[in-house]
């Protein structure tokens, strides 16, 4: 059977939030700019990046995602997320290892209601005619620089966004322990471009993904979309195979 992750869930919680209430209502954020830079990664550490509930994809991948909203119910914000591509049983998923968000209402809501592993920072999403980029600095050090180069329009329906499995310390039945919280946003895309993927800087330790090494570019996309963050419907025990460890709320 496929390779399972072998990370101790406790080691994946350095930036995991605590969620005391999973009864989250859906929320739509309009006109979000979304940059998604996808790379294949060094397969020697693919199992160490995921808990036993999840399988690495064949080949293993990382998604560097930049989002920027200029207004909306959570105000203006910019978010950078690093996600490891994976499978929960037969479902395509991504496990965020860490996210950096500008300070404000969005950071709080994304953390508390949807379990994003956020720390506050100043990610910058830049849009140019020949490229789009996301950059994150930690002090004077650039810990992430990724871009889409030479964008060309593609169909709005050509894109496929996968759901996230967010590690969070969930308070449930009188116990607080790590769970994988399934977050499957809906994307209503109004514009989409595709181009070459390029990662110029990636500090795997900063992103809580030790030894994750992007090695082969796949592609990058840049879209404008209304994103509906969902009501949480499922959580999964990170220690059990997702096919048996998933719990409907």
């Amino acid at each position: 059977m496929p390779i399972n992750g072998n990370a101790d869930p406790g080691q994946l919680t350095q930036y995991a939030p605590t969620m005391s209430n999973l009864d989250t209502e859906a929320l739509t954020i309009p006109n979000v700019k979304v940059l998604n830079v996808i790379y294949e990664i060094d397969d020697s550490v693919m199992a160490e990046l995921l808990p036993p509930a999840l399988h690495p994809t064949i080949p293993p991948t990382v998604h560097v995602i930049g989002m920027r909203a200029d207004d909306g119910p959570l105000g203006a914000f910019t978010l950078a997320t690093v996600r490891v591509g994976c499978r929960a049983a037969v479902r395509p998923r991504g496990l965020p290892t860490r996210a950096v968000c500008t300070e404000g209402e969005a950071a709080t809501a994304l953390t508390e209601r949807w379990g994003f592993p956020i720390t506050i920072g100043e990610p910058v999403l830049r849009e140019r005619y020949d490229r789009q980029s996301i950059e994150v600095n930690d002090g004077n050090v650039t810990v992430l620089s990724a871009q889409l180069i030479d964008p060309v329009p593609i169909g709005n329906g050509d894109l496929l966004y996968t759901a996230g499995m967010h590690v969070a310390n969930v308070e449930r039945d009188g116990e607080t322990k790590p769970w994988l919280v399934q977050v499957d946003p809906e994307f209503e895309v109004s514009r989409a471009d595709r181009g070459a993927a390029q990662i110029d800087a990636f500090d795997s330790n900063f992103w809580d993904a030790p030894d994750l090494r992007p090695v082969y570019p796949i592609v990058a996309s840049y879209t404008t979309a209304n994103i509906t963050l969902p009501k949480i419907r499922y959580i999964c025990d990170p220690l059990q195979p997702a096919i048996s460890g998933t719990v409907a709320l």
């Binding site: 059977m1 496929p2 996808i38 399988h55 994809t57 064949i58 080949p59 991948t61 591509g85 499978r87 049983a89 037969v90 479902r91 395509p92 593609i154 169909g155 050509d158 894109l159 496929l160 996968t162 989409a192 595709r194 796949i218 592609v219 996309s221």
Partner: peptide, 20 residues
């Protein structure tokens, strides 16, 4: 079940490389 489970671990083009 085994066949479908294995197939799902692969990476379809559409998941990572949007194209018509």
């Amino acid at each position: 079940g085994s066949f479908g489970y294995l197939a799902a671990q692969l990476l379809p083009v559409r998941e990572v490389h949007p194209t018509r």
